[in-house]
Simulated assay, not measured.
Amino acid sequence: MAESARQIADELRDRIQSGELAPGARLPGEPALVREYGVAKETARRALTLLVTEGLAVRRRGSGTYVREFRPIRRVANRRLAQEGWGSGRSIWAADLGERPLSVTDLKVYETTAPDHVARVLNLAEDTPVVIRDRVFVVEGEPVQAATSYLPAELVRDTAIAQPDTGPGGTYARLAELGLKPVRFTEELRARMPSQAEAERLHLAEGTPVVEIWRTAFTEDDRAIEVNKMLLDAGVYVMEYHLNS
């Protein structure tokens, strides 16, 4: 009996995870899968697409489908937001990447009226301006995350936070210097499919989901000081949390 696309993808995934198919190796093409498994071409295509959407494989136009060489990013929320990191001048990305290269593209820093939902979280009056920092983070040449931060303009407009380069430790270090040190954070996560514009911005393969995270930073007096919307390529992230009972 012919196997399903999911069964074929499972077998190919096992071969990838065992190392039989190494990073950069070419996966069997649709004709080979049709012959090996006795399935229709569309079933073979769906099997390969499943691996692409999981972040295990990439398609190269006119060449085939290959095992993805990009190593997953392990995002440990508890560690990346620890004060000993940004408080000592390190980027919060250092906790995720170690020595892996990081760059920022499509950076825009501007002031505008706060969206309604952001104004509610920041406890701002209607039409209150915020400083927005909008950018895409690129790791080893691959866009992995788009992020948009919102901060009350009256507090940060004449500071490094409103400049392209916020300096060592980033936004949280600058807030601390202003007497607005973040001491706790909340994050809300959901998985969804991206819009066309989002998929193009992150160079996502067709059918690849994203993880949307809304993070709010709070000061010691429980004031919400920053809202950050992050959109992550679900195929390149492992989310890790350390929870105490």
Rank of each mutant, 00 (worst) to 15 (best):
E177C: 03
R120S: 08
A160N: 10
R174K: 14
I132V: 15
T159R: 02
V138Y: 14
V136E: 04
L155Q: 14
G169F: 07
E126A: 10
E154P: 01
P194K: 08
T148I: 13
A173R: 14
V138C: 09
L178I: 05
E198T: 09
E154N: 10
V144L: 13
P152R: 02
T128F: 02
N123M: 15
A146S: 12
P194W: 11
P143W: 12
R184S: 08
D158T: 15
V131G: 05
V130L: 03
D165L: 11
P143A: 07
L122I: 12
E177W: 00
D134S: 13
R190G: 00
E200A: 15
D127F: 13
A197W: 09
L175A: 02
A173W: 06
P164W: 09
T148N: 05
V130W: 01
A199M: 08
R120D: 12
D165E: 13
T186C: 03
Q196F: 14
Q163T: 11
T159D: 03
M193C: 05
G170E: 09
V121W: 00
A197H: 13
P194S: 05
S149K: 08
R120W: 10
L178A: 07
I161A: 10
G141D: 15
V156K: 02
A125C: 10
T148A: 12
E142I: 11
V121P: 02
A147L: 08
V131H: 12
D158I: 10
L180G: 02
E154R: 09
R190I: 04
L122R: 07
G169P: 00
V144A: 11
N123V: 14
R120A: 14
R135L: 03
R174E: 05
T148E: 13
L124R: 00
T186P: 07
D127G: 11
E142F: 06
A146I: 11
A153H: 09
N123E: 14
R190M: 05
T186G: 04
